[in-house]
Design a protein around this nucleic acid. Structure first.
Length: 214
DNA sequence: CACGGGATCGTCT
DNA sequence: GACGATCCCGTGT
């Protein structure tokens, strides 16, 4: 076994397994994703950030969810798959928003990753963002974190379960206590009627790397 | 710091 | 044909 193989097996051991994603509770998974590390491997380059803000969406009863009312289209199809895949869509014609598909097959649920703390390979993230300074503006916000990590809609449907892919999520032993997590209503979904105030947005309390609220 | 508007295009009606 | 799970920059305070 060479050094590369040792490194890879160590890395694989911290990748979140299928069992993490297939649980039928997207709200709980949204909380647990705080402190996990979103990693991309694109054109041979690794970048990674620690997740500090998430939002839960589910088709069964949530009018803010793209798949609400079993709306099953080419775009939302991946949300109906088994958990552990990426759902990435284009927002406002400009921003590529990254979601984690969760739950069992045909039970459409997803977690939107709204902000990460930039950790690995700051220079490349700065270059992708066209910024000269490191800091929260690099990755605080769902559109900008995708840009920093090189995530585009072409990765929608990708598996998150292996380091042989382009994108995955790792556990690096960071854990937050319940009182370190703030829950509040989700951003930008005022159209969702009685669902718009559900407290399904989760943030790490002391992080400076969360996106701005209304 | 708050607010306002423009960018830009895939998706669904 | 309208609009969106956003971002950035400009203006004014």
């Amino acid at each position: 076994m060479d050094i590369t193989a040792i490194k890879d097996s160590k890395q694989d051991s911290r990748i979140l397994p299928l069992s993490f994603y297939v649980r039928n509770d997207v709200v709980q998974i949204s909380r647990e994703l705080l402190g996990k590390f979103l990693v991309t491997h694109i054109n041979g380059k690794i970048t990674a950030g620690m997740i500090v803000e998430t939002e839960a969406y589910r088709a069964s009863d949530d009018k803010a969810c793209h798949a609400y009312n079993m709306r099953r289209t080419a775009r939302t199809e991946v949300m109906f798959a088994e958990g552990g895949q990426a759902y990435i869509y284009l927002c406002y014609g400009i921003h590529h928003l990254f979601n984690v598909v969760t739950g069992p097959k045909n039970n459409a649920q997803a977690v939107l990753i709204r902000a990460v703390e930039a950790i690995d390979n700051l220079p490349l993230m700065m270059q992708r963002r066209g910024r000269e300074k490191a800091g929260p503006q690099l990755t605080a916000g769902p559109g900008v974190l995708s840009k920093a990590l090189g995530i585009t809609t072409s990765l929608s449907g990708s598996s998150l379960l292996s380091s042989t892919g382009n994108i995955w999520i790792e556990d690096r032993d960071i854990h937050f206590q319940p009182k370190e997590i703030i829950s509040s209503p989700r951003v930008g979904i005022d159209y969702a009627e009685e669902c718009k105030d559900w407290p399904w947005r989760f943030r790490v309390k002391h992080s400076k790397w969360t996106s701005k609220s209304k």
